[in-house]
Design a protein around this nucleic acid. Structure first.
Length: 371
DNA sequence: CGGCTACATTTC
DNA sequence: GAAATGTAGCCG
């Protein structure tokens, strides 16, 4: 069975993922058949019983519905798609995911999977007709931002590779992606030090802005390698905002509440001094904007505010940049490169810790020509 | 960690 | 020979 098979997922999530009509087809027919198989079967059934007077109104509607949709159920493709370590809902019109869900545990963060071996590419399980393309992003001024991060999948190269499928990607401001969003992703990973199970649902929004006094308008950029064509082109929606819904719990303590946090971040550069709590929102407000219930099986009585049981403190921008410097020092292959990285650190007035100073000295010795 | 571009290689 | 794909080096 393919990863994105709608048939599999309709089976147990049909109430939220499908129309009532589709649900009827699932309930009344063998779900291993294709929808057109099922439709045909219902049609035959309808021909036999349509004029029976004892058919109840609900059944009559279903039978009539199958006649109306003789040529199939118009399908926007909002079925959930399954991958090694994430699940997502893709918008075929906007050509970006609606939401991407993942589970992070400590063991997922250990391993040798490396982005070096991954490439951004079209999702092989998605109809290419509705897919974005790398060319829609390259040179557009927008970066390819992961929703489920690559770094949450160190345990499996396959899982990491799948996060590079364009079904998991939205056009994102690169400074935002490198900075604040990066710090938020690191924060979610660090939550596994306190909670056994961390679940994150990430996605994007196209929020309206107020214009002409009180009138609101939705206005967002669309990206495409085909710049001029309007109808039938391949435009990728540039979201105005990104969100994360975080749940964290220690499930071995039965009955204990689940920590829940919801955050909405503008898709633009964010000041290095910004804190996560500035972007905290009520989950209900996010749900209303997104048109999605994110935690339908978690009653409000079992929720507790994440930022009341955790600091919700991101690592500082300075600490993040020092980490970059460390990685670059380690990767330096020449003395020139090593010194260039160190000079850049001084230029930006970053204060290296003892580890960084020692690393620099050690690398300098190992790269110096032997006499 | 998160990305990019330039250039080389492969593929049709 | 153009387009897709892979690699090296770079930046925040």
């Amino acid at each position: 069975m393919s990863l994105g098979s709608p048939r599999f997922f309709n089976g147990f999530l049909s109430g939220t993922l499908c129309t009532a009509l589709a649900f009827y087809f699932y309930k009344t027919d063998d779900y291993k058949k294709t929808s057109s198989d099922r439709l045909t079967q219902v049609n035959l059934h309808a021909k036999e019983s349509y004029h029976l007077t004892d058919v109840d109104p609900e059944t009559a509607k279903q039978l009539r519905g199958s006649e109306i949709l003789k040529y199939g159920i118009p399908d926007r493709g909002f079925n959930a798609r399954l991958y090694t370590n994430h699940v997502l809902c893709y918008d075929q019109a906007k050509k970006i995911p609606v939401w991407v869900a993942e589970l992070i545990t400590k063991s997922d963060l250990r391993g040798h999977a490396d982005r070096e071996y991954s490439n951004f590419r079209m999702d092989p399980t998605l109809d290419a007709f509705f897919s974005s393309h790398n060319n829609d992003f390259i040179g557009s001024g927008w970066s390819r931002g992961h929703m489920a991060p690559a770094g949450d999948n160190k345990f499996s190269q396959q899982a990491m590779d799948e996060t590079f499928y364009l079904t998991n990607i939205v056009p994102q401001d690169i400074s935002n992606n490198d900075g604040f969003w990066n710090r938020l992703e690191i924060y979610c990973r660090d939550l596994t030090n306190k909670f056994k199970e961390v679940r994150v649902i990430s996605g994007s929004l196209t929020l309206p802005t107020v214009k002409e006094g009180s009138k609101k308008f939705v206005n967002y950029e669309v990206n495409s390698s085909n710049k001029n064509q309007v109808i039938g082109n391949n435009s990728v929606t540039v979201p105005t905002h990104l969100f994360k819904v975080v749940t964290a719990e220690n499930p071995q303590q039965p009955g204990s509440p689940v920590a829940v946090g919801a955050f909405v971040i503008p898709n633009q550069p964010i000041e290095g001094s910004a804190q996560l709590t500035q972007y905290k929102v009520k989950l209900e407000d996010l749900e209303k904007s997104a048109g999605v219930y994110f935690l339908p099986r978690l009653p409000p009585s079992k929720r507790v505010d994440l930022c009341s049981v955790d600091s919700c403190q991101l690592i500082s921008q300075e600490a993040l940049e020092l980490y970059f410097v460390g990685r670059k020092l380690e990767d330096a292959r020449t003395l020139e490169r090593l010194d260039s990285v160190w000079k850049d650190l001084e230029r930006r007035h970053l204060v290296p810790d003892d580890y960084l100073i020692h690393l620099y000295k050690r690398k300098r010795e190992s790269l110096s020509p032997t006499r």
